Amino acid sequence: MDQYPDAVLFDRDGTLIRDVPYNGDPDRVRPMPGARDVLRALRGHGVRTGVVSNQSGVGRGLLTLDEVGAVNARVEELLGRFDTWQVCPHHPDDGCECRKPAPGMILRACEAIQARPERTYVIGDIEADVKAALAAGAIPILVPTPQTLPDEADRAPHTAPDLTSALAMVL
């Protein structure tokens, strides 16, 4: 078995970049502390990286897919190229299979980059990220932020205080 995971998938808002609700403005993108270094380290070890992001602002009529794409492009300008992007544009009431906590985006990301879910980590800041990872058979790491509910952190199988600490759990 390889010493490194097949892939690490990240939630976008609150994990890789500061959470700006329903952000459609690339100028408001600010990386989270440690994000650049963590991604550089993963890529340096040949670990594939991806983003799995609920973007209900599209389904709510608050954002367009083009605006989400422009923000994602800015994320890549600041943090480097990801091997896969999976975005759920649906409203929470749509009942889709992709919106976290459903496993759809994680499974699609793994398929897109030929990663085995059981050898894939999913790093996020809320319980929906953890539940989606578990449902997909991946390994969740919760990195709490002020938006994370305390009981969500208590229920998560793995938590890290920041991205750098999460990296130490992965490599």
Rank of each mutant, 00 (worst) to 15 (best):
M1Q: 09
M1F: 01
M1E: 11
D2Q: 11
Q3I: 08
D6K: 06
V8R: 09
F10S: 10
D13M: 10
G14I: 07
L16C: 13
D19Q: 14
N23G: 01
D25F: 00
D27R: 15
R28A: 15
R28D: 08
R28P: 00
V29C: 04
V29N: 01
V29Y: 00
V29T: 01
P31H: 00
P33W: 02
A35S: 15
R36T: 14
V38Q: 08
V38T: 10
V38E: 06
L39C: 09
L39K: 12
L39W: 08
L42I: 03
R43V: 10
G44W: 04
G44N: 10
H45N: 11
H45Y: 09
H45L: 14
H45V: 00
G46T: 08
G46E: 12
V47H: 01
T49G: 08
G50M: 05
V51E: 03
V52T: 14
S56R: 14
G57R: 12
G59M: 08
G61W: 03
T64W: 09
L65K: 15
E67P: 01
V68E: 06
N72G: 12
N72S: 15
N72P: 08
A73Y: 02
V75F: 00
E76M: 14
E77L: 06
L78Q: 13
L79D: 08
L79M: 14
R81P: 01
F82R: 10
W85T: 03
Q86A: 12
V87P: 11
H91P: 06
D94F: 00
C96L: 06
C98K: 05
K100S: 02
P101I: 07
A102F: 01
G104A: 10
G104T: 05
I106K: 04
A109Y: 02
A109L: 05
A112W: 07
I113N: 10
Q114T: 12
R116A: 14
R116P: 01
P117L: 02
R119K: 15
V122M: 15
V122H: 07
I123P: 11
K131F: 00
K131D: 09
A132F: 04
L134Y: 00
A135K: 07
A135Q: 04
A135G: 03
A136G: 04
V143F: 03
P144H: 07
T145M: 08
Q147W: 07
T148S: 14
L149V: 00
L149N: 00
P150Y: 06
R155T: 03
P157K: 01
P157R: 01
T159R: 13
P161I: 06
T164D: 10
S165M: 00
A168S: 14
L171H: 04
